[in-house]
Amino acid sequence: MDSVEVFHQLPLTIDPSTKALASTDPSLAAEIEEVNKLHRALLSLDTPNQVPPPPAPVNPKRSVQIGKMRETGNASYKKGAYADAIKMYDLAIRMASERPTWEAAGLVREELGALYNNRAQANMGLQAWADGAVDAETSVEMKRLGNVKAWWRRGQCLKEMGRLEEAVDWVDTGLEWERAGPEKNGLGELEALARELRKALGRD
């Protein structure tokens, strides 16, 4: 890096009406695009000075909305309207991932983990095993510990698709993680699935 006092003057232009940046240098395009995106997000802030607030207390409006959508989705799922439930979860997932990026990442992780898990369940209801498997994997990626259901769901989906080897690997990894986790005692289902898979493999 150059010394602290030096910088490179870049060829930038500003659109006077939209205030969007642009540059004649194509190598800057990605960076400029990010700045513009962030700028738009900043403009929607209603804090004093339009400066992003510290990440700790999050604006509860969005959380409430996401919670509502999830409840609606859950209700649809209970009635057996899986497609409706998936639609609702989709909306909630989009809402959660469109949180301003400076808000707490841990919260996004938690919300998305639960939502993807629910969507996986609804997809399993529709016997859309591929969708369910991917959603459950995403949920596990968000939350590895204390997420026995998601581990089980992906294992089940893989089993249904006939990818037994993969399923055994997956379930074993899940068991390893969860034995150290807070849901140590809720492992019965996962262990049963592991036994079942072993049996199926052994018989082949």
Partner: peptide, 12 residues
């Protein structure tokens, strides 16, 4: 240059 643009650039 509007402040908001500068703020966005500073955050980046």
């Amino acid at each position: 240059v509007p402040d908001s643009v500068l703020k966005a650039a500073l955050m980046r």
